[in-house]
Design a protein around this nucleic acid. Structure first.
Lengths: 220, 220
DNA sequence: TACAGAAATAGACACCTGGTAATTAATTCC
DNA sequence: GGAATTAATTACCAGGTGTCTATTTCTGTA
């Protein structure tokens, strides 16, 4: 809440060394959008909490939506997706790769719960904001998952579950519930899970998913 | 979009037989809240689409939030929860009861995607709106699930997965993704699933979950 | 040291919001 | 048939919104 970006700054250009910390600014914006949604977040309120003027935000990012895009881009750029490496690694057993992929994704989602949270707020299918998240966050995941699942099915190692990719992504999304303070509290998870909690949770989710689709003997 | 509640109605009290259809009104409100969230939905815009004055809505329901509560209550009252019967039915095998419970819940969620959608929009943990959904929608589910899981664990028929109830509820929630036009399209599901699609999906979700936690032989 | 450009602020703009008061028309009751 | 009640409308209010413009202050360079 008290971001304390700066003491009151005064009018003109800031003194050297007193520039605004973009990391802090964008992180605060991300959290605000995640908590109250795009419509529920006002530029003025955010700027007040940051201790800057409201005009700064729209001037720097062009518009409120520009700020939204910048905040999203910022968090997504922080974390380089390692899923594709795992999925196509020839040295890894396919089933183990699937399992590790789930674990990694759940941990990522848990580390950045704002991304899924913000996505939940977007309702209109043709919204450019939703499109951005999909293209940047969901779609890069799909091909790897689908290739891997297809290989496992042809090898007769998992059941050909209908809409398996959708299930997979849903499980990954569901995994993030754990790290979302709101839903964790609701559903009985720990209010402030530490890294170990998150890891244990990710492993459990992966175990259930893998055990659920794996075949002891090939049958399909 | 074109709810066509009524042609322009004119000033005073409506003629007999021209009263407002509450079902249509509340369903439209529910869909609006689901799509754009509480903050993003304006009473005036909704009333315009319904072909009534905006003052009607606040007058009838006290306030915008009153309208929200009425719309939620309306959809939840439509569907009587049958989960508890299933969970505590002595005639049903426990594992089969768990499976049927999942199937029923997924089908319910798919039939009323707005409920979970609206829930997604609520961010503040102490919001009275969020509390309402939890008390009315999530909490009634918990005891049955927990009792059932506990019985199955003591009987040695499923693995004692940590946070199993949370996983269960997450899967149920994830199941609803299928019926949400936004996410279904994103994740590659059918844009307009029919009843059979939904049933097949619900069965598949249940199968994965059950197979994932069931034990062929007791080991815990 | 003078000055062009950069980076912040304050203030005004038109619009939209939820809520309320005044008004009008149909119904119901005596 | 007239009076009271009900249920809708329109008009208005105070406050909040995103955006745009003008202003101020500091930096860097010639």
């Amino acid at each position: 809440m008290a971001y304390a970006l700066a003491a009151p700054r005064g009018r003109g250009r800031p003194r050297a060394g007193e520039e605004i910390d973009l990391d802090v600014l964008l992180q605060a914006a991300l959290e605000a959008f995640a908590e109250t949604g795009y419509n529920g977040t006002s530029v003025r309120d955010l700027s007040r909490r940051l201790g800057v003027s409201h005009a700064l935000l729209t001037a720097r990012f062009g518009s409120k939506e520009g700020l939204w895009f910048a905040a999203m881009e910022h968090v997504l750029a922080q974390t380089e997706q390692s899923w594709r490496e795992v999925a196509d690694s020839p040295s890894l057993d396919d089933l183990e790769a699937l399992r590790q992929g789930v674990v990694r994704q759940v941990i990522f989602s848990a580390a950045h719960p704002q991304v899924l949270r913000i996505m939940n707020h977007e309702g209109a299918i043709d919204s450019p904001r939703l499109r951005f998240v999909i293209d940047r966050f969901v779609n890069p995941l799909r091909p790897g998952v689908e290739r891997l699942l297809a290989r496992l099915v042809t090898a007769g190692r998992i059941r050909p579950v209908p809409y398996a990719t959708l299930h997979f992504l849903a499980v990954v999304g569901g995994g993030a519930l754990f790290a979302n303070p709101v839903e964790a509290a609701l559903l009985g998870g720990p209010a402030h899970p530490d890294a170990e909690d998150i890891r244990a949770h990710a492993e459990a989710v992966a175990d259930v998913l893998i055990a659920g689709i794996a075949l002891a003997t090939a049958e399909a």
